[in-house]
């Protein structure tokens, strides 16, 4: 059978990324131009600045991805691109570049859901076994997705307020840690002890939804209280206590869902999947079961285009195409 090569483009937030993936499983090239240095001075991603950088980077990253691959356009079967969710102005650059490429090279155009991409990042490491459960945790997402077959996504739980990564960033700001704060909290947590019993939002008994805004407020209140009383809290202990609350809820709900749906695989995806505390808690919980747990390497956890090409490959194989009126959709739902 002929090999399939899919080009992927991802510009939903602050990374301009292009990749080429073979048969949905093998990375041929994977180029990411991060804007993180530019956004650091603002303490977070500024949408207008992100859009400006994407325009400056897009063809450079495209060219690099082709050079790295050693392939030519003749080898490419389709152009896939993140159509949402994400920052609309940022998404628009990828979407319009993808349309121009598909038109210029007369290739099929495939819009991809960003979260489908995060899930399929794992397939670049190991083949999927269905049904599978995916836990997606990032700055913008906290979701549990059940998949019964390729390209079929059922969201069984999601955050009702803040994403886990968002809570990390906000707590990091309270502790005056540099942006992005998640990795710093993870590092501090490893050095601290769980001395504060922060709340765990379990929600209703049968719900797989999440909520992190209450926890975030509890952390902020605790710090304020301590400041008022002149009491010193160790930063490491705050980080450890906060992280313990987040990862316990994530890991417990993931395990419960995995058992209920009798899945053959659990995969973790998204930027927060790089978090050591979360990895350790999940590994501990799943070691008592025989359900295999997949966590991709760091560079596939954060936003990249190989994951978009990997997910796009499934759309391509299933005959799902996008038309030239494809638009960026900042609140696209996973289907």
């Amino acid at each position: 059978m002929k090999d399939t090569y899919i080009l992927g483009i991802e510009t939903s937030c602050d990374e301009t990324a292009v990749a080429i993936v073979k048969n949905g499983k093998e990375i041929i090239s994977n180029v990411v131009a991060s804007q993180i240095e530019s956004h650091k001075r603002f303490g977070g991603v500024v949408p207008e600045i992100a859009s400006r950088h994407h325009v400056e980077q897009i063809t450079i990253v495209l060219e690099e991805a082709f050079e790295e691959s050693g392939l030519s356009w003749d080898d490419i079967d389709a152009v896939s691109v993140t159509e949402g969710p994400g920052l609309v102005g940022a998404l628009l650059i990828g979407v319009n570049a993808a349309k121009a490429l598909a038109f210029a090279k007369q290739k099929p155009l495939i819009g991809v859901h960003h979260i489908a991409g995060h899930i399929y990042a794992n397939r670049l490491e190991e083949e999927f076994q269905f049904p599978l459960l995916a836990l997606i945790v990032s700055g913008g997402h906290t979701e549990l997705v059940l998949m019964k077959e390729h390209g079929n996504y059922e969201v069984i739980g999601e955050t009702r307020d803040d994403a886990a990564g968002e809570a990390y960033d906000k707590v990091a700001r309270m502790l005056n840690l540099p942006y992005p704060g998640g990795p710093h909290i993870d590092r501090l947590a490893a050095e601290g002890e769980v001395t504060i019993d922060f709340p765990r939002a379990w929600l209703e008994e049968d719900s797989y939804d999440f909520s992190f805004s209450g926890l975030k407020s509890a952390v902020i209140n605790r710090i304020h209280n301590a400041n008022q009383k002149g009491e010193t809290l160790k930063q490491e202990d705050i980080a450890a206590s906060f992280q313990a609350s987040v990862v316990e809820v994530l890991a417990t709900k993931t395990l419960k869902a995995a058992k209920q749906y009798q899945v053959k695989q659990v995969i973790v995806a998204g930027g927060v999947a790089a978090n050591k505390g979360l990895r350790a808690e999940l590994e501990a919980k799943f070691s008592e079961t025989d359900i295999p747990l997949l966590i991709p390497p760091l560079k596939l956890c954060t936003d990249n285009a190989a994951m978009i090409a990997a997910a796009g490959t499934i759309n391509y194989e299933q005959g799902r195409r996008s038309a030239m009126d494809l638009n960026a959709n900042p609140s696209l739902t996973l289907r």
Binding site: I58, T59, N96, F103
Partner: peptide
């Protein structure tokens, strides 16, 4: 946004 849509399309066409 409008400027970026036109320019992104134009430069990607020109490059490819």
């Amino acid at each position: 946004t409008g400027v970026r849509i036109g320019l992104t399309t134009a430069k990607t066409l020109a490059w490819s």
